[in-house]
Nucleic acid binder design. Structure first.
Length: 431
RNA sequence: UCCCCGGUAGCUCAGUUGGCAGAGCGGCCGGCUGUUAACCGGCGGGUCGGAGGUUCGAGUCCUCCCCGGGGAGCCA
């Protein structure tokens, strides 16, 4: 007897197999009973007729939703079966039969109810493909950087210094010392790239922002890369290659899941086929205004501004060279125009917002000290970071890609909370 | 922090001018030999978010509070 996963059924047509999973739903038409079994890789329909043993025939009528079970039967193709293949069931063996009804039905539920039951909601039809695509995004990132010779590294989660301003930090007590949860591993990656040349990592970031929108989490995952001897131009090229690689990888590895989510893979491929659009901040302001959004030079972009750019181009767009005032201290000034920095944000298509922020970094001690002072930051906590510019400093650049926003774009889900198993948001810490 | 919407059965919701508390789904029972969130019949199921007020009478009107959702601000 072969134990088989639902995603592999097509390779076992005609064989008797064992499927282990959970009862997703059941239907009956009198003497023909259908059990829909999910196993994490997919859902398959089992057909139970009176030819099965009497106990199995009875179970097919009365097992409650989310019973765990083992199903033995023969795989066969049938156009009436969802997915094209079904199991002619010989025997069902229950593993655990719930004593009370599963809280989440197949009909509609409200968001608050679903979020309160997130630990169970993730079993449902739409959530499983989203989380499988999330997995593919992580693998795509790792495969891309491995192919490019980047070394996987790590940054600490508990830190003593802020990357950005101090308003969005989660404070904690570190044996009596003030400490924070990391907002970004960037500063540490700048150090490791001077040791290893080209580095990346995928790690959690924590922001105590009181943002209550469909694009924000207080705990999210970022894929960050940093490379020595990489300039602004090379940085943009690297980012574009990465994003295209992720989309092509997911479309190739998770096409079935995209279709289950009714996300057209051809639309995604079309969006990344052409070179990404590239405009300066100054040009972006004009385009945003032409779409009727009120914005002044020097403003950072809100959601309406990003959406206007997104709609204007219909493909990913880099917005580069922001005024130095709206960007953090570590970005290198443009030698051609010191009022702007050598940075770029990548705006995803279809209104999914900024998915990458990156820049060339300050690489001389003098500039760094000046920019720290301009930002009104104390020098002492950044002593180690300043050290990096004292010995063998080189031009270097890097960026961070927001994993959840990328997954939201690729899957087409409206709200970022469905792109991570257990979202952490303002006013939501349970489950 | 601000603005908008909402809170009625386990879930999703309806409830007219203030006048008997409702439906669908889920659950249970029954029917149906190809169902696709199956369908058909039957049965149970209520602190109408909380407190106070107006009224002969409040799910419905008023005040305050609590909770949820959407958005803004904020946000590599």
């Amino acid at each position: 007897m072969t134990q088989v996963y639902v995603e592999d059924l097509a390779r076992h047509e005609g064989e008797e197999v064992l499927i282990q999973g959970w009862l997703y739903n059941k239907r009956s038409s009198g003497k023909v009973r259908f059990v829909l079994v999910r196993d994490g890789t997919g859902i398959v329909q089992g057909v139970v007729t009176p030819d099965a043993d009497p106990q199995t025939f009875e179970l097919a009528e009365h097992l409650p939703q989310e019973s765990s079970l083992r199903v033995w039967g023969v795989v066969r193709a049938d156009p009436r079966a969802p997915g094209g293949y079904e199991i002619l069931v010989r025997r069902i063996e229950p593993v655990h039969i719930p004593k009370e009804p599963f809280p989440i039905g197949l009909k509609e539920h409200g968001v608050g109810f679903l979020m309160d039951h997130r630990h169970l909601w993730i079993r449902m039809r739409k959530q499983v493909p989203i989380l499988r695509i999330r997995d593919a995004v992580f693998w795509a990132i790792r495969a891309f950087f491995k192919e490019r010779g980047f070394v996987a590294t790590e940054a600490p989660i508990i830190v003593g210094t802020a990357v950005e301003g101090t308003t969005t930090l989660f404070p904690l007590d570190y044996f009596g010392e003030p400490a924070y949860l990391s907002q970004s591993g960037q500063l540490y990656l700048e150090a490791t790239c001077m040791a290893l040349g080209r580095v990346y990592w995928i790690g959690p970031c924590f922001r105590a922002e009181k943002s209550k929108t469909r694009r924000h989490l207080t705990e999210f995952w970022m894929a960050e890369a940093e490379a020595a001897f990489l300039d602004h131009e090379g940085n943009l090229k690297l980012q574009e290659d990465l994003v295209r690689y992720i989309v092509e990888y997911v479309v190739s590895e998770r096409r079935r899941e995209l279709l289950e989510l009714e996300r057209d893979p051809e639309i995604l491929l079309r969006e990344v086929r052409e070179p990404f659009a590239r405009i300066t901040y100054r040009e972006a302001i004009e385009i945003i205004r032409s779409h009727g959004v009120d914005i002044a030079y020097g403003d950072d972009f809100g959601a309406p501004a990003e959406d206007a750019l997104s709609a204007h181009f219909g493909r990913p767009v880099f917005v580069e060279r922001y005024p130095k005032e709206v960007k953090p201290f570590y970005m290198k000034r443009d030698p051609q125009d010191p009022s702007v920095v050598l940075n770029a944000d990548l705006i995803a298509p279809e209104g999914y917002g900024e998915i990458i922020g990156g820049s060339q970094r300050v690489d001389t001690e003098e500039e760094l000290l000046a920019q720290l002072r301009e930002a009104g930051l104390p020098l002492e906590p950044y002593r180690w970071y300043i050290d990096l510019r004292k010995w063998g400093s080189v031009p270097h650049s890097g960026f961070g890609l927001g994993v959840e926003r990328t997954v939201a774009w690729i899957t087409g889900v409206n709200h970022i909370r469905e792109t991570i198993p257990f979202p952490r948001m303002l006013d939501r810490l349970y489950p």
